[in-house]
Amino acid sequence: MIAGGTDAAVRMKEGKWRPEVWINIKGIHELRYISEKDGAIHIGPLTTHTDIIRHTLLQKKADVLVEAAREVGAIQMQNMGTIGGNIGTASPAGDTIPALYVLGAVFELRSITSVRLVPIEEFFIGPGKTILKKKEMITNIIIPPQKANEIGIFQKLGPRKAQSISIVNVAISLLMGKDRKCLGGKIAFGAVAPTIIRAKKCEALLTQQPLTDEIIQNIGKIAWKEVMPITDGRATAAYRRDMASSLLERGLYRLLRRWENDGEK
């Protein structure tokens, strides 16, 4: 199956993906939508990153996904690449995936004869590997809309600012109380393990005390314990571990700043 082709064409050129038949789904307009129905946001898999970035509903109620989409490649990739393709490639460094994790996304998978709903945490099983069956495809991405006091941020470190594959990325979503008090939150790291990792220990610390700059630093400091990165051409495992801490600290700091400046959305 080929959607935007920004992953598929590259793999094809490298000789890695050479199926006998490619099914081009890019023209199925029915699968390119963003809507709010029955208290849930629905995103069609052929929605491009640019569609996501520009959509006011998502800007308000799925801010972390909008930020992640903004970090995919650069304009050309955002215009061509789709969210379904980003999920389908199942790269540990895929940028929208951590965002979908912290938003608690559920995927609708369909074949001609079946439909099932799968929570994101059960979907990915390894680099490039998902539970998707042979004749199935993703037909809907369902996320609960953020509440008024829910805010999110996406942080990415690549070898440069545009057109780069994440060395480490992190998505954070917080449910805020008064001042700097956090009522709950989710943190998901990318590129530091075979699949996305939820930083449960850090998450548990979010609600202990008001998130002062010092507490933020302390939460950041333990993030490296939650990740299991490898060394590759882009970075060493040690640096990736350090960066898990740095990005979490940077993300929380920026998020809290925004919370204080904007208050409730």
Partner: peptide, 23 residues
């Protein structure tokens, strides 16, 4: 361009990082 034991580790512009307009 990274070369190890005579073999190129750098393949193309995916891993050879040049500045873009954002840099």
């Amino acid at each position: 361009v990274l070369i190890e034991e005579g073999y190129h580790k750098t393949r193309n512009f995916t891993d050879y990082i040049i500045p873009t307009i954002r840099e």
